[in-house]
Design a protein around this nucleic acid. Structure first.
Lengths: 197, 197
DNA sequence: CCTACCGATCGGTAGG
DNA sequence: CCTACCGATCGGTAGG
């Protein structure tokens, strides 16, 4: 505890970012010290600066990369799919799957976005809002087509999206269910939630 | 910014805890300094100790009180209700309503429980698990009775509960929807999710 | 990659 | 309720 790890593997930018990911997810940005990250990879704090710019830049890298991938995954998942139910199903499978597979990134995005300095914070929040609106647009499309029945697409979209987000909080990759199984169950939940089936 | 507030009202234990609630929710336990809390109520840091024991005790008070109330609210909500669908409906209304009304407390519970020292952390987590299991038991009861259709009660219980938790992240008390409206919409979502309706 | 060290800030205490 | 101050720790730099 608190001690330096043996210099197991070669220290690289990648291994530093990996350690930061784990520690930020575990203790939060403010709760994880650079010293802890250095210990984790087996070097002293100042040596981290051979691999990274600053603690803030570590956070920025994680949050920007993650939210950009959420958006591009979404676009890929629904492109050239016209059926609105299938669009929603794919959007939910993709989003839930991401939160099962990239649990640490998801936890950090949802916990530490307020620790991110401007202008990156606004970029991250704009990307998230774009995704939210796009999912909401699918729900509205389904309601207009008479396929979905929801009282308020705003509430329904948050219900569905935040349900997916929280997969990161309970999913256990060593557990009985695979990420794919959980994602498809969540898609089923979402379709029931909007009144299909 | 960062300056001391004018000594508006009398400083009391209650006003200190109120300021801590707001700041912990905004910035997280590690991100909020006692100095910020002192500034918020218009005194110097050492004077806080006339009202509280320590920063850690502030966190403990928030988390223990909140999780105890979650459990007692749940018990009150479902006692003497025999119909399983109605039991689930009440459990969800109660839990969602709490997360709309006590948003700050909910955010802190879900973000900073790992910053809580033992033995309080284990107490909080035990109380949460008890609530989770009780809600899961309702779902299993409904499945056994043939009223609910869910593939996996474990996944369904997390889907429902975490959906409610996240109300704290988006609900706006000044928005178009009241806490009661959101809570009853969420109850409808939950009942659809388990395959009724 | 290291040691040595920086100013700033942290939670908290002494003493009134 | 305050000022004065504590040791510890923070992110980060200098210089090799």
């Amino acid at each position: 505890m608190g001690h330096r790890a043996p210099p197991r593997d070669r220290v690289t930018e990648q291994s530093v970012r990996e350690a930061a990911l784990t520690l930020f997810a575990q203790r939060g940005y403010h709760g994880a010290a650079l010293r802890d990250i250095a210990n984790e990879v087996g070097i002293r704090t100042p040596s981290l600066y051979n691999h990274i710019e600053s603690k803030q830049e570590l956070l920025r890298g994680i949050l920007l990369t993650t939210t950009e991938q959420v958006w591009s995954d979404f676009e890929t998942a629904i492109e050239s799919v016209s059926d609105v139910t299938e669009r929603l199903r794919r959007a939910v499978v993709t989003y839930a799957l991401r939160h099962a597979i990239h649990r640490r990134e998801a936890l950090i995005v949802n916990r530490d976005v307020e620790s991110l300095d401007e202008p990156a914070r606004s970029e991250v929040m704009a990307l998230r809002r774009r995704h939210e609106r796009a999912v909401r647009a699918i729900i509205i499309e389904g309601v207009d087509a008479g396929v979905f029945q929801v009282e308020d697409p705003f509430v329904a979209s948050f219900g569905i999206l935040e349900m997916c987000v929280s997969v990161a909080r309970w999913f256990d990759p060593a557990g009985a269910l695979s990420a794919d199984q959980v994602a498809s169950e969540y898609a089923e939940f979402a379709l029931r939630l909007v009144g299909t089936r």
